[in-house]
Write a protein that binds this DNA or RNA. Structure first.
Lengths: 342, 342
DNA sequence: AAAAAAATTTCAAACGTTTGCATTTACATC
DNA sequence: GATGTAAATGCAAACGTTTGAAATTTTTTT
């Protein structure tokens, strides 16, 4: 019903060939001035819309790129996408966003689908399941096609053209260093599940920093949590019950930091006076809670933009053999009230 | 370089016709068992990927839909998108997301582009500029094509197939009613710019509720802000300096509520004891600040899902003449500490 | 061995557009 | 009037796949 007008339709109407219509609409100089004007006018009148699908087939180009991410409804992830978009939309690319919900099978399916749709590049933040299982075979066909494949957020050394990640290790190190430099001596850590690389790297940043500054390792100060507020509650109560309780807590993310702060306040202890708290993510929350939370900011938007630029570099490069660019962005420590000390 | 393998390539290799290859790969029953197996095996070996672009042209279907939104990096907006995605991805649709940054020209361009790409439907949350100027002409061609056009978040009565919006008026009314029922008598309002329909509706909800409960209208209790934390600071100081100061503040969103709470605390007043505060949006922040903030939750994900279902209803309906479905979702008041009273 | 039936494969057109090359038309020159 | 030149238009192929109808091959029946 109400099939879009085609060039052929217009040609028939004007008793001329599709070639003429095509050239007229594209302002090809060889077309007679009158013909051109008439055809353009008529095309506008009947609401002609060039069929990009046919052009995609003809030119073997789609100007669309795939973005495969675990979730989209999250400040950091959506900042990444906005960054990619900010660079690529102005150049005419459209984004085909695929949400994997951390599921391997969905991820695999989306990659196939994107290939089938002949996207010109794929950005991927691999799902947790993929990372756990180490199954990266579904990216092989991407690589074999010589299609730009850029890992974002979570790196994979295998065969990507590029990757942009954030140095969680460095971020954690800096945060803990800040705590040390402001005089804390017993620094605890709310550690995320080590199966997740972010948690693992932040944990390493914590231990390495302590080591470099000559602190004893103290197992009792390392607490297992996941990334949720609630998972921090009980363990932090126990932490505060220690005979030799900590004077600072570095948390794997802002959520657990908030959980910790609740407990600390509940025990009547002062933040940052008696215990300092630092988080990770610099989520929108952290500036607004009271006391405001010192946190490590991950530059998601910047990450997305960098990733997009790697894509462009590759896409418009002369020789495409061993191109590969790996960028590690430094996170930024944002110091707020929760660790403040004169 | 490394051009994808086509059906023709395979046909040449096997000295048969493309038809046979196509049928073999699609398990068409008419194909000889051996031929089928051989071809499928070979196709897998050389990594054949069906070219969906050519199929899109052939079938005049793209299984892709456009989503035009002002921004994506925001809890509510991205929840909407996730909702759409949750319903449509499992059915094989892909989302073509266009970020307008509230700009009319970008929005217009994206709509053209989506039409050109022959998407099968368009979801749009119109940009502020479009709303202000009332320029909806760029949607006419969508409508004329009989293409499902669904307005989300911000309605337009003109010609959409459907719309899903949230009843901001009702949300505001409920929030103010809650304040009244918990005994507040002088309820102030931090009002957003009336040019924005959400602000306008929330303001109406506020005034109507007061009227229905027989309260006098008091201009001095209505404060102009935009949606930012800072914009609330100064006006709230003035508000608290009133001889007859308010015992509750209903804020146009959570950000301004947070600004208000900062000032109230700074003045040494107790929340909710002396002044109650309610916000709008139920952003992730609101549960974590202290005291936690009573707020009106907008069911973004649900909105997206409903919108997607309207699209499906229309797309697979028999007769498509005067189809049109307008849903208004009720927001949900989430009561927390900031308005609590025994 | 011929004819009929069944099984398998091929042909050709279609989707909408662009573009190099060929053809037609219009006009000027001798 | 014939010829040459320039301007405008048309032809046909291409992109990759599917599919009804036709053609071919194989198998069965007489």
């Amino acid at each position: 019903m109400s099939r879009p007008v085609t060039i052929k339709d217009i040609a028939k109407k004007f008793k001329c060939s599709p070639s003429t219509v095509s050239r007229a609409l594209n302002n090809h100089p060889v077309i007679n001035e009158d013909t051109r004007r008439n055809l353009q006018e008529y095309a506008r009148k009947v609401g002609y819309q060039r069929n990009q699908v046919s052009l995609n087939l003809l030119n073997k180009k789609t100007a669309s790129i795939g973005v495969v991410v675990p979730t989209i409804n999250n400040y950091y992830e959506s900042a990444i996408i906005e960054g990619i978009d900010a660079v690529l939309q102005p150049l005419g690319y459209s984004l085909n966003i695929c949400v994997t919900k951390e599921q391997f099978l969905l991820e695999q399916g989306y990659v196939e689908k994107l290939l089938s749709n002949r996207v010109e590049g794929i950005f991927v933040s691999v799902s947790q399941e993929t990372f756990d299982a180490g199954h990266y075979e579904h990216f092989e066909s991407v690589y074999n096609r010589n299609l730009p494949l850029i890992f974002i957020d979570r790196e994979y050394e295998g065969f990507a053209v590029g990757s942009v990640t954030i140095d969680d290790y460095q971020g954690a190190f800096t945060a803990v260093e800040h705590l040390i430099k402001t005089g804390r001596r017993r620094i605890a850590h709310l550690r995320g599940p080590l199966s997740m690389s972010v948690a693992e790297q932040r944990f390493r940043g914590y231990t390495e920093c302590l080591k470099q500054y000559g602190f004893e390792e103290d197992e009792s100060l390392i607490i297992h949590t996941d990334f949720k507020v609630e998972s921090a509650i009980k363990p932090v109560y126990q932490l505060l019950d220690l005979p030799n309780k900590p004077d600072a807590i570095f948390c794997v993310n802002d959520q657990t930091a908030i959980g910790a702060m609740k407990v600390i306040r509940d025990r009547g202890l002062d933040i940052p006076g008696e215990i300092a708290v630092a988080g990770f993510d610099d989520s929108p929350i952290s500036g607004y809670i009271s006391p405001s939370l010192t946190s490590v900011a991950r530059p998601g938007r910047q990450l997305g933009m960098k990733a997009a630029r790697i894509f462009l570099d590759y896409q418009y490069a002369e020789k495409k053999e061993a191109f590969s660019e790996h960028i590690i962005l430094p996170p930024q420590l944002v110091i707020r009230e929760s660790t403040f000390r004169e």
